[in-house]
Amino acid sequence: MKSPLLSLPGAVSAEGVDEGVAGHYGDLFREQRALADGTGFVDLSHRGVLTVTGDDRLAWLHLLLTQHVSELPPGRATEALVLSANGHIEHALYLVDDGTTVWVHVEPGTQQALIAYLESMKFFYRVEVADRTDEFAVVHLPAGSIAPVPEDVVVRETGHGRDLFLPRARLADLSGSGPFGPPAGVLAYEALRVEGHRPRLGFETDHRTIPHELGWIGSAVHLQKGCYRGQETVARVQNLGKPPRRLVFLHLDGSEVHLPPRGTELRRAADGPDGRAIGFVTTSVRHHELGPIALALIKRNVPVDADLLADTTAAAQETVVAP
């Protein structure tokens, strides 16, 4: 679904899973600085949107998700995961309840698989699940933004900013002189996400990722709630073991023009480029202040002070998930 904001001057389409919205509008660093200063907005209209209605919606979701949502107050934002039976992450949900409806946004293209799973688990519960992606678009306002939001728009507010569930027909009204200020592309949004050490499904995850590896315990996984699929793995790692991998933040050598793409193998610098792989880059970006930075998954037993190589690019690590 192509965003109408791609017709704005300077707009360059994003690539990969973010295709359909602008990667940038001609000045990546200016857009990053604007978001960091609390101005402007990000078009995230490529993300999937779904709603859950019905009297049992919160109690039912509580049984299926990793987060405690049975008593979620209206207007309080949270995030949650759907795990496989083995505890591997399958879906990440960003949600808010408005008093009658749970609004959720998810990674682009994942809503149909999520809806299929939810439909299979309805049983006798009084709930209705709907794909609203054709009707509503996600627009992000950064933390500190004072832009007014129409009263009829559902807002999901966190410490990172506000996610608006905006009627898709209103997207065309947004521009540099619109109600939210100048637009910023998803590359600027991603740079601030990496700086904030926030994992993203399909980027920091693979087919065997468990929540402990990414630091999603607490923010997306509640450890004192009832049973859900995959809980046994979460409890076992929490009480008896340690995750096999851990998320790290990398400062990449700024002298390199090339950013190592997702999947680039990591090795200890002491072992050289032919050494044994100990992890891989998950997201790499250019930051307006920090320069080239990245998130990566590495083996838990790699020393926290070990210098790394991403292919041939030197990388210094900062701990996100403690070993």
Rank of each mutant, 00 (worst) to 15 (best):
H222Y: 14
V52D: 04
R162P: 07
Y94Q: 14
D56H: 09
A235I: 05
D307S: 13
G38T: 05
V42T: 13
F249I: 06
R156G: 03
T110Y: 15
V221M: 12
V302K: 11
V257T: 15
V257K: 15
A172G: 01
A11Y: 09
K242W: 06
V49W: 10
H91T: 00
H258K: 15
F123G: 02
Y117H: 12
Q111E: 02
Q231I: 12
P183L: 01
F136R: 13
S84N: 04
E213D: 00
E318S: 15
Q224T: 15
P323E: 08
C227A: 08
L93Y: 05
T51S: 13
P182Y: 12
G87Y: 01
R47M: 09
A322M: 12
P292G: 02
V194H: 12
L93G: 01
D97I: 08
D206S: 00
D274F: 11
G20V: 05
E204P: 07
H258G: 05
D271F: 00
G23K: 09
A14C: 02
R126V: 04
E90K: 15
A77R: 11
A306K: 05
G241A: 07
L64I: 01
R156H: 13
L6V: 10
P199S: 06
V138Y: 03
D307G: 07
V153K: 11
L174I: 09
A22P: 06
R236G: 00
E204C: 08
A113H: 07
V281D: 02
D307E: 13
S219V: 15
G54Q: 04
P150Q: 09
G263S: 06
H207L: 13
N86Q: 15
D56S: 01
V221Y: 08
L50Y: 10
R286W: 03
N301E: 07
V139M: 08
A22Q: 05
E31F: 13
L250T: 02
Q32A: 03
E119D: 13
Q224Y: 15
A315N: 09
T282R: 07
V194N: 03
R267N: 02
G10S: 13
S284T: 01
A220M: 10
A294D: 04
F136I: 04
D27N: 13
V285M: 03
P9R: 13
L214F: 10
D56T: 01
V153A: 09
G279V: 12
A315P: 08
Q67V: 10
L28R: 14
E15Y: 08
P211G: 07
P142M: 02
D152R: 14
N239Y: 15
L247S: 06
E19R: 15
G254F: 11
G241F: 07
A77Y: 11
A130T: 14
G144L: 08
G161W: 03
S84V: 07
K122D: 00
Q67E: 08
G87V: 04
D98T: 04
L63V: 01
H212M: 01
S145M: 12
D134R: 11
P182V: 05
V82S: 06
V234Q: 09
